[in-house]
Design a protein around this nucleic acid. Structure first.
Length: 286
DNA sequence: GTACAGGCAGTAT
DNA sequence: ATACTGCCTGTA
Protein backbone atom coordinates (compact mmCIF):
# COMPACT_ATOMS: atom_id res chain seq x y z
CA UNK A 1 0.00 0.00 0.00
CA UNK A 2 2.98 2.29 0.49
CA UNK A 3 3.79 2.03 -3.19
CA UNK A 4 0.39 2.82 -4.64
CA UNK A 5 0.09 6.06 -6.52
CA UNK A 6 -2.36 7.83 -8.73
CA UNK A 7 -1.33 8.67 -12.28
CA UNK A 8 -3.98 10.51 -14.27
CA UNK A 9 -7.20 8.68 -13.51
CA UNK A 10 -5.65 5.34 -12.61
CA UNK A 11 -4.02 3.86 -9.53
CA UNK A 12 -0.83 1.85 -9.87
CA UNK A 13 0.87 -0.28 -7.24
CA UNK A 14 3.31 -3.12 -6.85
CA UNK A 15 2.57 -6.56 -5.45
CA UNK A 16 5.97 -8.27 -5.27
CA UNK A 17 7.11 -8.65 -8.86
CA UNK A 18 3.78 -7.60 -10.34
CA UNK A 19 2.45 -4.18 -11.23
CA UNK A 20 -1.23 -3.62 -10.54
CA UNK A 21 -3.57 -1.03 -11.96
CA UNK A 22 -7.16 -0.06 -11.50
CA UNK A 23 -9.18 2.77 -12.95
CA UNK A 24 -12.65 4.07 -12.55
CA UNK A 25 -14.34 5.28 -15.67
CA UNK A 26 -16.49 8.22 -14.74
CA UNK A 27 -16.89 9.54 -18.26
CA UNK A 28 -19.97 8.51 -20.13
CA UNK A 29 -19.23 6.55 -23.24
CA UNK A 30 -22.16 6.71 -25.61
CA UNK A 31 -20.86 3.68 -27.48
CA UNK A 32 -20.86 1.42 -24.48
CA UNK A 33 -23.68 -1.03 -24.13
CA UNK A 34 -26.02 -1.26 -21.20
CA UNK A 35 -23.91 -3.81 -19.39
CA UNK A 36 -21.22 -1.23 -18.70
CA UNK A 37 -22.16 1.09 -15.89
CA UNK A 38 -20.41 4.42 -15.71
CA UNK A 39 -18.83 3.68 -12.33
CA UNK A 40 -17.30 0.35 -13.29
CA UNK A 41 -13.77 -0.31 -12.05
CA UNK A 42 -11.26 -1.78 -14.48
CA UNK A 43 -8.55 -4.00 -13.04
CA UNK A 44 -5.35 -4.78 -14.86
CA UNK A 45 -1.90 -6.10 -13.99
CA UNK A 46 1.45 -7.08 -15.43
CA UNK A 47 2.28 -9.89 -15.63
CA UNK A 48 -1.43 -10.49 -15.68
CA UNK A 49 -3.13 -12.10 -12.74
CA UNK A 50 -6.81 -12.57 -13.36
CA UNK A 51 -8.93 -11.36 -10.46
CA UNK A 52 -6.05 -9.99 -8.39
CA UNK A 53 -8.38 -7.45 -6.85
CA UNK A 54 -10.11 -10.22 -4.97
CA UNK A 55 -6.85 -11.03 -3.20
CA UNK A 56 -5.45 -7.54 -2.71
CA UNK A 57 -8.66 -5.87 -1.58
CA UNK A 58 -9.74 -8.91 0.43
CA UNK A 59 -13.01 -9.40 -1.44
CA UNK A 60 -12.94 -12.95 -0.05
CA UNK A 61 -13.67 -11.59 3.42
CA UNK A 62 -17.25 -11.60 4.65
CA UNK A 63 -17.25 -7.84 4.92
CA UNK A 64 -20.92 -7.66 5.96
CA UNK A 65 -20.28 -9.91 8.92
CA UNK A 66 -17.09 -8.09 9.83
CA UNK A 67 -18.63 -4.61 9.76
CA UNK A 68 -21.66 -5.85 11.60
CA UNK A 69 -19.50 -7.37 14.35
CA UNK A 70 -17.36 -4.24 14.68
CA UNK A 71 -20.38 -1.99 14.84
CA UNK A 72 -20.77 -3.00 18.46
CA UNK A 73 -18.05 -0.46 19.18
CA UNK A 74 -19.22 3.15 19.08
CA UNK A 75 -16.15 4.76 17.56
CA UNK A 76 -15.60 2.05 14.96
CA UNK A 77 -19.30 2.07 14.09
CA UNK A 78 -19.19 5.82 13.58
CA UNK A 79 -16.08 5.51 11.42
CA UNK A 80 -17.57 2.76 9.27
CA UNK A 81 -20.52 5.01 8.50
CA UNK A 82 -18.24 7.93 7.71
CA UNK A 83 -15.81 5.96 5.52
CA UNK A 84 -17.89 3.04 4.20
CA UNK A 85 -15.38 2.05 1.54
CA UNK A 86 -12.37 1.70 3.80
CA UNK A 87 -10.81 -1.76 3.57
CA UNK A 88 -7.79 -3.75 4.65
CA UNK A 89 -5.31 -4.59 1.91
CA UNK A 90 -3.47 -7.85 1.52
CA UNK A 91 0.21 -7.46 0.65
CA UNK A 92 2.81 -9.73 -0.81
CA UNK A 93 4.52 -11.16 2.32
CA UNK A 94 8.17 -10.42 1.54
CA UNK A 95 7.33 -6.94 0.33
CA UNK A 96 5.28 -6.43 3.46
CA UNK A 97 8.11 -7.54 5.73
CA UNK A 98 10.69 -5.21 4.20
CA UNK A 99 8.20 -2.36 3.93
CA UNK A 100 7.50 -2.42 7.64
CA UNK A 101 11.13 -2.92 8.56
CA UNK A 102 11.67 0.40 6.77
CA UNK A 103 8.66 1.88 8.54
CA UNK A 104 10.20 2.08 11.99
CA UNK A 105 10.65 5.55 13.41
CA UNK A 106 9.75 7.52 10.32
CA UNK A 107 6.88 9.09 8.42
CA UNK A 108 4.77 7.57 5.67
CA UNK A 109 6.28 10.03 3.21
CA UNK A 110 9.77 8.81 4.05
CA UNK A 111 8.76 5.15 3.96
CA UNK A 112 7.46 5.66 0.42
CA UNK A 113 10.71 7.31 -0.54
CA UNK A 114 12.84 4.51 0.87
CA UNK A 115 10.76 1.80 -0.82
CA UNK A 116 10.79 3.60 -4.16
CA UNK A 117 14.58 3.97 -3.96
CA UNK A 118 15.03 0.30 -3.04
CA UNK A 119 12.76 -0.76 -5.90
CA UNK A 120 14.60 1.42 -8.39
CA UNK A 121 17.98 0.09 -7.29
CA UNK A 122 17.19 -3.57 -6.66
CA UNK A 123 13.89 -4.22 -8.43
CA UNK A 124 13.26 -5.11 -12.06
CA UNK A 125 12.32 -2.42 -14.55
CA UNK A 126 8.93 -3.05 -16.10
CA UNK A 127 7.12 -1.09 -18.77
CA UNK A 128 3.40 -1.35 -18.34
CA UNK A 129 0.72 0.81 -19.84
CA UNK A 130 3.44 2.91 -21.50
CA UNK A 131 4.92 3.80 -18.13
CA UNK A 132 8.07 2.63 -16.37
CA UNK A 133 7.75 0.84 -13.03
CA UNK A 134 10.07 -1.09 -10.76
CA UNK A 135 9.00 -4.32 -9.12
CA UNK A 136 9.70 -4.83 -5.44
CA UNK A 137 13.22 -6.20 -4.83
CA UNK A 138 13.55 -9.94 -4.31
CA UNK A 139 14.85 -11.20 -0.97
CA UNK A 140 17.91 -12.48 -2.82
CA UNK A 141 18.78 -9.09 -4.28
CA UNK A 142 18.44 -7.44 -0.88
CA UNK A 143 20.58 -10.12 0.69
CA UNK A 144 23.32 -9.55 -1.86
CA UNK A 145 23.19 -5.77 -1.46
CA UNK A 146 26.01 -4.11 0.42
CA UNK A 147 25.40 -1.87 3.41
CA UNK A 148 26.42 1.18 1.39
CA UNK A 149 24.09 0.27 -1.48
CA UNK A 150 21.21 -0.02 0.95
CA UNK A 151 22.10 3.22 2.67
CA UNK A 152 22.21 4.99 -0.69
CA UNK A 153 18.46 4.36 -0.79
CA UNK A 154 17.98 6.62 2.22
CA UNK A 155 17.08 3.90 4.69
CA UNK A 156 19.70 5.03 7.22
CA UNK A 157 20.30 2.74 10.15
CA UNK A 158 17.49 0.47 8.92
CA UNK A 159 20.02 -0.96 6.46
CA UNK A 160 21.29 -3.21 9.24
CA UNK A 161 17.79 -4.58 9.83
CA UNK A 162 17.11 -5.03 6.12
CA UNK A 163 20.31 -7.09 5.77
CA UNK A 164 19.51 -9.11 8.87
CA UNK A 165 15.98 -9.92 7.67
CA UNK A 166 17.14 -10.77 4.14
CA UNK A 167 19.84 -13.07 5.47
CA UNK A 168 17.37 -14.71 7.85
CA UNK A 169 14.91 -15.44 5.05
CA UNK A 170 17.52 -16.55 2.49
CA UNK A 171 18.91 -18.95 5.09
CA UNK A 172 15.53 -20.66 5.08
CA UNK A 173 14.53 -19.72 8.61
CA UNK A 174 11.20 -18.24 7.67
CA UNK A 175 8.42 -20.36 6.17
CA UNK A 176 5.77 -17.90 4.99
CA UNK A 177 3.13 -20.53 4.22
CA UNK A 178 3.62 -22.07 7.63
CA UNK A 179 3.34 -18.70 9.35
CA UNK A 180 0.12 -18.04 7.46
CA UNK A 181 -1.35 -21.27 8.79
CA UNK A 182 -0.41 -21.17 12.47
CA UNK A 183 -1.95 -19.03 15.20
CA UNK A 184 -1.36 -15.34 15.74
CA UNK A 185 0.66 -15.98 18.88
CA UNK A 186 2.88 -18.66 17.35
CA UNK A 187 3.52 -16.69 14.17
CA UNK A 188 4.29 -13.55 16.13
CA UNK A 189 6.82 -15.42 18.26
CA UNK A 190 8.60 -16.47 15.08
CA UNK A 191 8.75 -12.94 13.68
CA UNK A 192 10.03 -11.47 16.95
CA UNK A 193 13.12 -13.65 16.69
CA UNK A 194 14.32 -11.52 13.78
CA UNK A 195 16.57 -8.51 14.36
CA UNK A 196 14.74 -5.32 13.48
CA UNK A 197 11.25 -6.71 13.99
CA UNK A 198 9.52 -5.72 17.21
CA UNK A 199 5.93 -5.86 18.44
CA UNK A 200 4.42 -3.26 16.15
CA UNK A 201 6.16 -4.28 12.96
CA UNK A 202 5.40 -7.95 13.63
CA UNK A 203 1.71 -7.13 14.09
CA UNK A 204 1.65 -5.20 10.81
CA UNK A 205 3.25 -8.09 8.94
CA UNK A 206 0.83 -10.55 10.53
CA UNK A 207 -2.21 -8.46 9.68
CA UNK A 208 -1.32 -7.31 6.19
CA UNK A 209 0.31 -10.40 4.77
CA UNK A 210 -0.05 -13.45 7.02
CA UNK A 211 -3.82 -13.74 7.34
CA UNK A 212 -3.97 -12.76 11.00
CA UNK A 213 -7.10 -10.63 11.07
CA UNK A 214 -6.92 -10.78 14.86
CA UNK A 215 -3.66 -8.80 14.90
CA UNK A 216 -3.95 -5.24 16.21
CA UNK A 217 -0.82 -3.15 15.52
CA UNK A 218 -0.30 -0.43 18.14
CA UNK A 219 1.59 2.61 16.97
CA UNK A 220 1.72 6.18 18.20
CA UNK A 221 -1.56 7.05 16.44
CA UNK A 222 -3.38 4.13 17.96
CA UNK A 223 -2.02 5.14 21.37
CA UNK A 224 -3.44 8.61 20.85
CA UNK A 225 -6.80 7.12 19.93
CA UNK A 226 -6.74 4.82 22.96
CA UNK A 227 -5.86 7.71 25.20
CA UNK A 228 -8.74 9.81 23.89
CA UNK A 229 -11.46 7.25 23.30
CA UNK A 230 -10.73 3.97 25.01
CA UNK A 231 -9.53 4.74 28.52
CA UNK A 232 -12.64 2.98 29.84
CA UNK A 233 -11.42 -0.26 28.29
CA UNK A 234 -8.41 -0.55 30.55
CA UNK A 235 -8.41 -1.21 34.26
CA UNK A 236 -6.79 1.03 36.80
CA UNK A 237 -3.57 -0.87 36.69
CA UNK A 238 -3.16 -0.34 32.98
CA UNK A 239 -4.51 3.18 33.05
CA UNK A 240 -1.31 4.49 34.53
CA UNK A 241 0.25 4.21 31.10
CA UNK A 242 0.81 7.54 29.51
CA UNK A 243 -0.65 6.39 26.26
CA UNK A 244 0.52 9.29 24.18
CA UNK A 245 4.14 8.40 24.79
CA UNK A 246 6.19 5.38 23.96
CA UNK A 247 5.40 2.14 25.71
CA UNK A 248 7.55 -0.75 26.86
CA UNK A 249 7.41 -4.24 25.44
CA UNK A 250 5.37 -5.42 28.40
CA UNK A 251 2.91 -2.56 28.20
CA UNK A 252 2.45 -3.36 24.52
CA UNK A 253 1.62 -6.96 25.43
CA UNK A 254 -0.96 -5.91 27.99
CA UNK A 255 -2.63 -3.38 25.70
CA UNK A 256 -2.54 -5.82 22.79
CA UNK A 257 -4.19 -8.57 24.84
CA UNK A 258 -6.97 -6.25 26.03
CA UNK A 259 -7.67 -4.90 22.57
CA UNK A 260 -7.63 -8.29 20.85
CA UNK A 261 -9.93 -9.64 23.51
CA UNK A 262 -12.32 -6.71 23.11
CA UNK A 263 -12.45 -6.52 19.30
CA UNK A 264 -12.17 -10.25 18.68
CA UNK A 265 -11.21 -12.10 15.53
CA UNK A 266 -11.57 -9.01 13.33
CA UNK A 267 -9.37 -6.80 15.52
CA UNK A 268 -7.26 -5.86 12.51
CA UNK A 269 -10.22 -4.32 10.71
CA UNK A 270 -11.07 -2.37 13.86
CA UNK A 271 -7.49 -1.13 14.01
CA UNK A 272 -7.68 0.09 10.41
CA UNK A 273 -10.83 2.11 11.07
CA UNK A 274 -9.45 3.58 14.29
CA UNK A 275 -6.13 4.40 12.67
CA UNK A 276 -7.86 6.10 9.76
CA UNK A 277 -10.21 7.96 12.08
CA UNK A 278 -7.53 9.35 14.36
CA UNK A 279 -5.24 10.43 11.53
CA UNK A 280 -8.08 12.08 9.64
CA UNK A 281 -9.20 13.89 12.78
CA UNK A 282 -5.65 15.15 13.18
CA UNK A 283 -5.79 16.49 9.64
CA UNK A 284 -2.98 14.29 8.37
CA UNK A 285 -2.60 14.38 4.60
CA UNK A 286 -0.93 10.91 4.48
C1' DG B 1 19.84 26.50 12.19
C1' DT B 2 15.77 23.42 14.85
C1' DA B 3 11.67 20.37 15.49
C1' DC B 4 9.59 16.50 13.90
C1' DA B 5 8.46 12.01 12.08
C1' DG B 6 8.04 7.64 15.72
C1' DG B 7 9.82 1.87 16.49
C1' DC B 8 13.69 -0.98 17.81
C1' DA B 9 17.79 -2.45 20.34
C1' DG B 10 20.92 -1.87 23.95
C1' DT B 11 22.21 -0.63 28.49
C1' DA B 12 21.61 0.96 33.12
C1' DT B 13 18.75 0.83 37.12
C1' DA C 1 10.16 -4.88 34.40
C1' DT C 2 10.89 -0.04 33.52
C1' DA C 3 13.65 4.15 32.17
C1' DC C 4 16.43 6.10 29.20
C1' DT C 5 19.23 6.79 25.00
C1' DG C 6 20.84 6.72 20.17
C1' DC C 7 19.55 6.18 15.71
C1' DC C 8 19.42 8.05 9.42
C1' DT C 9 17.26 11.20 6.69
C1' DG C 10 14.31 14.46 4.56
C1' DT C 11 10.43 17.82 5.20
C1' DA C 12 8.45 21.96 7.22
Amino acid sequence: MFLWERIDNSWYGTFGDHVMKFSTSYTHNRNCNNNNKNNDIQFDSYPEIKGWERKVFRLDDDIKAILSTLSNDDLVSKTIKKYPGLRLMRQEPHQCIFSFVCASNTSILMIRKMLKNLSKKFGREVTFDGKVFFTFPSVNSLNKATMNELRSCGVGYRAKAIKAVAKYIVSGNLDIDYLARISYQDAKEELLKIYGIGNKIADCILLFSLEKLDAFPIDIWILRALSRHYRWLFNENENRFKMTERITMNQYKILSASLRNYFGKYSGYAQQYIFYYIRESAGKKW
